[in-house]
């Protein structure tokens, strides 16, 4: 394990639930992981696996009033974020921890200029001295928006999707945060733009040395930028692995399925591999392993008890009865 000094974020036994009329949905159920300083983590999993709720929990912005962080600890720079007041959290957001949302077109307010929306990041953290406009232009320059001096006064609807995402990334890194959470930053964009945005994030990471949590269901994205992968399934992390191990040697049957379902260029297959069955209903999750109903290697114990996290080697853990 890394020394305490290197660790930026440590999530311990986080449980976040949604209290609905139908019952309690355990969207994030006992999730623990760490992010070291300067590390790029990939958080993968299918829709509804709890990736976004995990990141919103870190921001303490779980949708109200249904959503609630039930228990656990989120330790950021040796302080538990769950013990912070709303005012203290507000000061951290956009300053020390930042986040980029999925759909750039709706994440910007169409009624306010791009410059105003970037400027807010400075203004509300007491960093708006006389040259606020220059600062906003600089942000646009950093994310390579062409002719930033005029674009700063434009409205989001005058920007393309890729340009909007650049603006959002720029806003995210404006105050040089220590942690940047990117929630599927490229899913709403087309492929060529995706590559540009990823390159941009890589460059920016190298410049600022921020830690990044990249949330995605696109394994290709992870391969390009991450050093470590955390696989989520049904509100839990099922495997934590260094990027190379994950691709060459996935241990959890679900990770294996994910890797197998990626089409390979030049390899002819009759039918693309797909994991059978549906993701679990988190209102009534399976009693044992969440993946057991869809797992081809399931044993008897799998349907009875949730497997413990087993350390296979340094930095590679898996929660599966196959190894326990």
């Amino acid at each position: 394990m890394a020394s305490r000094k290197d660790i930026l974020l440590e999530v311990k036994n986080l449980k976040t639930s949604f209290f609905t009329k139908k019952g309690v949905i355990k969207a994030v159920d006992d999730v623990s992981f760490t992010v070291k300083k300067g590390e790029v983590i990939g958080l993968v999993g299918e829709s509804g696996s709890g990736k976004s709720v995990t990141s919103l929990s870190i921001m303490r912005l779980v949708p109200q009033p249904a959503g609630k962080i039930v228990s656990g600890e989120i330790i950021f720079n040796n302080e538990n974020l769950l013990n912070k007041s709303e005012t203290e959290m507000r000061e951290l957001r956009g300053n020390n921890i930042s986040m980029i949302l999925q759909d750039p077109m709706v994440s910007l307010n169409q009624l306010l200029t791009v410059g105003y929306q970037i400027g807010e990041t400075f203004k509300h953290h007491g960093k708006a001295d006389g040259n606020l406009l220059d600062k906003c232009i600089n942000v646009l320059k950093k994310v390579r928006v062409p002719s930033p001096e005029t674009r700063v006064n434009n409205y989001p609807f005058q920007f393309s999707g890729g340009m909007c995402q650049r603006v959002l990334i720029g806003t995210g890194i404006a105050n040089n945060p220590e942690l940047l959470i990117a929630d599927e930053p490229t899913t709403a964009l087309d492929v060529t733009i995706q590559a540009q945005i990823l390159q941009l994030m890589k460059d920016l990471r190298n410049e600022t040395n921020a830690s990044i949590i990249l949330i995605t269901h696109d394994l290709a994205t992870i391969a390009q930028i991450c050093t470590k992968v955390y696989v989520m399934y049904g509100g839990r992390i099922v495997e934590k692995a260094p990027i190379k191990d994950f691709y060459k040697n996935p241990q959890h049957p679900y990770s294996e399925g994910l890797i197998k379902s990626v089409p390979v260029l030049g390899k002819r297959v009759k039918r693309l591999f797909a994991i059978e069955g549906q993701p679990p209903n988190l209102l009534h999750p399976p009693p044992g392993c969440r993946f057991e109903p869809r797992c081809t290697k399931a044993k008897k114990v799998c349907s009875q008890k949730y497997p413990p996290e087993i350390e296979l080697k340094k930095d590679h853990q898996v929660s599966c009865w196959l190894y326990g």
């Binding site: 921001m59 957001r93 956009g94 930042s98 949302l101 999925q102 306010l112 807010e120 509300h124």
Partner: peptide
Amino acid sequence: SDYVVMARIKGVPEPYVNIIH
């Protein structure tokens, strides 16, 4: 909406989120 979540992510105080956004 997402732009309100985004404003909160930026650390915009609630009165501003409610009125301006």
